[in-house]
Design a protein around this nucleic acid. Structure first.
Lengths: 113, 113
DNA sequence: TAAGTAAATAATTATATACTTATATATCAA
DNA sequence: TTGATATATAAGTATATAATTATTTACTTA
């Protein structure tokens, strides 16, 4: 269970986690594959802002993308070298599934993805 | 062992941890009370830069200061509301005690503290 | 193939961050 | 009380960050 990670690597990852939007995105992607438009709906910020957050996560290899037709779904990369480290943080955060449920209730999830 | 922390609180703490200098400082302070001049010697940055990092950590209550004569020693606040959360990160980082040993060998630790 | 939708990228901007130098404050010791 | 040392604070600067709007690219479907 106990992992080890060099301090320079850890600080780079923690800096990425140290943004409320990205941290919430990661917590969601840990359970669900999500598309950009869902995040736009959830966080109420512009589509490019979401894309840019995802870009940073992807550049570090923390998330993976998968195109499904018109949409691109993002999800946690479980094979990342420091996945266990990231998990050790995420597992302490309250579940954010209510955000997905809210999308479903509003029909925003279905309409988009 | 498992803790819970709201996502907004977590992101604020993680942002502080997401700087290599501060993360290393915290790892050191988790075991040793350290004074500002030791950090200056270790990180080879200016004294005000160290003071400013410590200020941020102190503003969040993560560290405590204790004056001993001319010096002010900083150490981890074990009673912080999110101490367990911080620990869950720090315990995965390699021990940094070699940095203290190096100071002792150089005589920098004794001369200062 | 043309129109519509999803996402990425480019360019810009405002703010935050991490540092510097200069100065102020606090303690110690002669 | 004066000089030396340790730390904090102020002010300034260069860079990083997180957002925006405008545009491009990629896919789908009529």
């Amino acid at each position: 269970m106990q992992t080890t990670i060099e301090i320079d690597k850890a600080s780079i990852i923690l800096k990425l986690l140290g943004d409320e939007t990205r941290l919430t995105m990661l917590k969601l992607m840990d359970e669900h594959a999500c598309c950009v438009c869902e995040f736009v709906e959830i966080f109420q910020i512009s589509q490019p802002a979401i894309s840019q957050h995802l870009r940073k996560l992807k550049d570090l290899g923390l998330v993976e993308e998968e195109r499904r037709g018109q949409w691109i779904f993002y999800s946690m990369n479980n094979n990342h070298e420091y996945y266990a480290f990231i998990q050790s943080v995420l597992k302490q955060l309250p579940n954010q599934n209510y955000r997905i449920k809210k999308l479903e209730e509003e029909g925003t999830r279905i309409s988009c993805c």
